[in-house]
Design a protein around this nucleic acid. Structure first.
Lengths: 351, 351
DNA sequence: CGTAGCCTTGACAACGTTGTCGGCGCAGTT
DNA sequence: AACTGCGCCGACAACGTTGTCAAGGCTACG
């Protein structure tokens, strides 16, 4: 640790009063100039601008908001599963880009799937009087948001719908995406398709499972219990579950992995077993570098960018005063064929 | 798009005045209860709490901050290269975790390498009177922050040092990391080691190059111009540069790629040429799933978590009133051997 | 029994800004 | 010459909260 010179003496911030005094005008005139209101002569406006510049004046957004009639802070809150996870952070970026066009700042936070943290963060943000909240919810009951909503805070849910609360929502078409992924494998002739999914209590995970079942039911295939592993929550668990499934009797010729980490675990297992070119694999959720693996991994990709954008746009419509009925937007998934999902079924040896 | 029922009638927020009226006490007493100040009888405190609860009272943080003597907003700003990139978002998460312990909210934004955006975001955040700013700077001149710093905003730079401004800084040891990565290849007997790096004008990129040169100079090896490609800024450019380097005369037996995307481009090129098991590769910066590739990629990993944590902790020390000299913290890198960096040199055929 | 001192409580000003309103000066009209 | 209307400007109150201070009631002590 190197030591440099320390911070120098503190100089307090200039206020409008200071600017007014230096420019020789009233405080209200400064306010008018700063807010670009009409009705100030060019001469005075110029003086004010010069004074503001010299004093490094910067409007105090808190004070402004306190007095303003529209009550807007120009700040929104964004509650994500985890700011560091690729899906969440892609949504974050999309929301930021929309907010940036309006000069709106974004408060962000991670929930880690804990409802308590959701409530804490909501409180932290609303006490700062955010104009709106985009939330990827952790909890299942959002009745606690009713007063907030009534007070005028715009609410848009992403990825999962709110519980016990009506609000705008933007969702991925999980069921349809899963159905499509499994159908892709069926189309290639696979009959025994294994399912590995995240915790069943998570709504999205269970919708994906429903999609899997639906895809099999359509052509009248059975859903076999030994080909289904739910509640697989980590890479390691997915690795183990995959290994078990593939080394058991009547092993599947293809796998549908319904979540990112599960897909990674399955890839590891397939690789260790040396069967990555033999067992087909379709994963839900794209992941960075999926195309660099061998074989490259076919995925049902979500579109976090579209989700974030749609959510932010809806949020700002509400903030702008749209009082129309609540909306539900469903963002389609896209099947990206890269190789692993196009492996044909291994012919079965008659016993 | 499905239509649900619309938002219901607006009900304005309760203020301390409302709570006071309902509890039959003065406004100041409510303030005391809300702030857990001593000297309120249990009876009144209970009445106030009940009234606050019934009215869903929530303190207005803006108004509080306006009046408070310490002038703290309990909010910090975080300027990152891009909230969606893995390095930035890992730093983000670490900062959030430290902030969360103190109930501090985090405003975050992306700079995309543009100094103008940096200034805009700084203005957006400081006008909201953040207590401090953690910045991964895009610009090279930070003199514009002097008034802000003097006004009492804590500043901590991460990943790159500030220009024309003294402030605390947390850096990765780029030079040393690069030296270590290249030395690792030299140790394995490689003599011709190619360098591919990001834009030379970026400080971190140039430090990594310096580290490469230093590693070669130590045992007295030459730095050959045709083994160096700088200013490689995209995956595609890296792919091309790698291809050129490997198909040229006197091709290297090992590559040191000094940035994430450059490493990915090199992996693609090696794979296309079918030489991924023959040419050694060490990359700077870990990347998700580097261990799933074939061969798994050996990297010099940065520690974004440690960087973010150190930055946030330093920031809060300043916010808490530490007026000591500015500090520079250097976070070490770690070499992760996965396979690609341990490939021995191909014996040269005598011509 | 008087008084000092503590505990509890509330009145009031202030934070930095914007909304409202009224005043002044000047041009144009009768 | 008096009036009207408009353009420009400033005084003042208010936003929701906290800091300061003083008032009132009580206890404890001489």
């Amino acid at each position: 640790m190197t030591t440099l010179s320390g911070p120098s003496a503190r100089r307090p911030r200039a206020t409008m009063r200071d600017v007014a005094a230096r420019a020789g005008v009233s405080l209200k005139t400064v306010s008018r100039v700063v807010n670009r209101e009409a009705g100030v002569s060019d001469l005075l406006a110029e003086k004010v601008r010069a004074a503001a510049e010299e004093l490094n004046f910067q409007l105090n957004a808190g004070a402004r908001n306190l007095r303003r009639s529209d009550g807007r802070t120009g700040t929104i809150g964004l509650l994500l599963e985890n700011v560091a996870n690729p899906f969440s952070s892609a949504v974050h970026r999309a929301v930021e880009d929309v907010a940036r066009l309006r000069g709106v700042a974004v408060l962000a936070g991670s929930l880690d799937g804990t409802p308590q943290r959701e409530r804490e963060l909501v409180a932290t943000f609303t006490s700062r009087r955010v104009d709106g909240l985009v939330l990827m919810p952790a909890g299942a009951d959002h009745a606690y948001l009713v007063p907030e909503q009534r007070a005028g805070t715009a609410l848009v849910f992403v990825d999962r719908a709110p519980g016990r609360l009506d609000a705008d929502v933007v969702l991925t078409d999980n069921r349809q995406g899963a159905t499509g992924g499994v159908a892709h494998l069926l189309d290639r002739g696979h009959e025994r398709i294994g399912f590995l999914g995240d915790l069943a209590r998570i709504a999205t995970a269970s919708e994906r499972y429903d999609g899997y079942v639906e895809a099999l039911r359509a052509p009248g295939r059975p859903v076999s219990a030994d080909l289904v592993a739910r509640d697989v929550a980590t890479v390691e668990a997915a690795d183990m579950a995959t290994t078990d499934m593939l080394t058991g009797p009547d092993a599947p010729t293809a796998l549908f992995t319904a979540q990112n980490l599960v897909t990674i675990g399955a890839v590891k297992a397939l690789r260790r077993l040396g069967r990555q070119h033999e067992v087909a694999l379709v994963g839900f959720d794209d992941f960075l570098l999926g195309d660099l693996l061998d074989p490259p991994v076919t995925v049902v990709a979500q579109d976090p960018d579209a989700i974030g954008r749609a959510a932010a746009e809806q949020l700002f419509r509400r903030i702008d005063g749209d009082h129309g009925p609540f909306t539900m937007q469903v963002v389609p998934t896209r099947l990206i064929e890269r190789g692993s999902g196009e492996i044909p079924p291994l012919r079965r040896v008659a016993s």
